[in-house]
C-alpha cells in the first residue's frame, strides 16, 4: 500500500508541523470539527488524543475518522491504558481499513490522574510492546501468532522526553522504540533549549524524525498547574516567571510569543525535524503561531 501523506513527508527534508486536537467529552463534535477545519491545511498531520489525561472522551479513532472525512491527515494516538492487546489490534485493523495509518504508540497516563480513578488500569502492553505488536500485524500475523486475512501497514511513532530528570533511562527506552520500528517521535513539551540541544545531537545518530513538542501556555496559573500536575511536563521557573509578566487577560498572547520564539530557535538551530504543537484547547491560535514563526503549512 502507498505510504500515507505524512509518511512520505517523513522521508523528505521538509520541516514537519503537526498539531493535536482533544475530542470532546460527549457527542457534540462541532468544536472538534471546527479545529480540524482550522488545522488541516496548515499542518502535516493532526494527532487525536486518546482519553487525554485519563479523562473519558470521545475516542481517538472517532476523531481520526472525522479528520479523514474532512480531508485532513490524522495521527491516531493509542495508549495501552484502557485496552488489552485484542482491543488495540482490533482498533488498528479498523483504523487501517479507513485509511488511518499514522499511529502514535503511548503507554498512557495513569488512571489516577483522570476522572475515573476507580477504573481498572489495563496496561497490557507498554509503548515498546505496542510497536512490536504493530510489526507483527504488518508481518501478516496477530500478536498471538495467528494468520491475518489481509495485512495492514502503518506509519508508527512514539514519544520521548528530552528534558527528563533522569535522561539515560529515557534514552535507553527511546532506543528500544527505534529498534521496534518507530519512524517518528513527537516529544513531550520542550522548554529547556540546552537539554533539547543535547538530545538533538544524541538523536541525530538514529534514522528517525523527531518533532519537538511545543505547548502553548495560556496563563501563569495554567503553567504552574501543568508543572505540578501534568505528567511529563517540566517547566523552567523562568518560563513561569515570563508568563507572570503578561498583563491580565493577555496570558495566551504571552504563551504564543514563547511558542513562536521556541519554534524559530528550533528551526534556526535545526534542533528537530519539525514541531508538534499542543495548544491544549486553544487550537484556534495554531495558524497564528505558524504565521508568526514563518513556519508550517502543508505546502510550505
Amino acid at each position: 500500500m502507498a505510504k500515507s501523506a505524512f509518511e512520505e513527508k517523513l522521508h523528505s527534508d521538509k520541516f514537519l508541523v503537526t498539531s493535536e486536537i482533544g475530542p470532546p467529552k460527549g457527542v457534540d463534535v462541532s468544536e472538534m470539527i471546527h479545529h480540524i477545519e482550522i488545522l488541516k491545511d496548515r499542518v502535516d498531520a493532526i494527532n487525536v488524543t486518546d482519553h487525554q489525561s485519563s479523562m473519558m472522551h470521545f475516542p481517538s479513532l472517532g476523531g481520526c475518522l472525522l479528520i479523514k472525512e474532512h480531508g485532513g491527515e490524522p495521527v491516531l494516538q493509542m495508549t495501552g491504558r484502557d485496552r488489552n492487546r485484542l482491543a488495540l489490534q482490533a482498533d488498528l485493523l479498523l483504523a487501517y481499513s479507513r485509511g488511518i495509518v499514522n499511529v502514535l504508540c503511548l503507554t498512557g497516563d495513569s488512571i489516577n490522574s483522570g476522572d475515573h480513578k476507580d477504573a481498572k488500569p489495563v496496561f497490557d502492553l507498554d509503548s515498546v510492546q505496542m510497536l512490536h505488536m504493530i510489526r507483527m500485524l504488518e508481518s501478516g500475523k496477530d500478536a498471538g501468532g495467528n494468520q491475518l486475512k489481509g495485512t495492514p501497514c502503518f506509519c508508527s511513532g512514539a514519544s520521548v522526553h528530552p528534558e527528563a530528570d533522569f535522561l539515560e533511562p529515557q534514552l535507553i527506552k527511546f532506543e528500544k522504540k527505534v529498534a521496534a520500528g518507530a519512524q517518528f517521535f513527537q516529544t513531550q513539551g520542550v522548554f529547556n533549549v540546552t537539554k533539547l540541544r543535547e538530545f538533538s545531537e544524541y538523536a541525530s545518530q538514529f534514522n528517525v524524525k523527531v518533532l519537538a513538542g511545543i505547548i502553548v501556555l495560556a496563563s501563569a496559573r495554567m503553567a504552574r498547574y501543568m508543572n505540578n500536575n501534568v505528567p511529563g511536563i517540566i517547566l523552567p521557573e523562568e518560563i513561569i516567571d515570563e508568563m507572570e509578566t503578561a498583563e491580565k487577560g493577555r496570558g495566551l498572547t504571552k504563551g504564543i510569543e514563547i511558542a513562536v520564539r521556541s519554534i524559530k530557535l528550533i528551526k534556526e538551530e535545526k534542533l528537530a525535524h519539525g514541531i508538534h504543537i499542543m495548544a491544549v484547547g486553544n487550537e484556534g491560535v495554531v495558524p497564528d503561531i505558524l504565521d508568526q514563526a514563518g513556519s508550517g503549512g502543508v505546502n510550505q
Binding site: 498512557g108 507498554d126 511529563g232
Partner: peptide, 10 residues
Amino acid sequence: KGILNGPCAG
C-alpha cells in the same frame, strides 16, 4: 503502570 521496558515520561 507495570511497564516492562523502561520508565514512562511521568
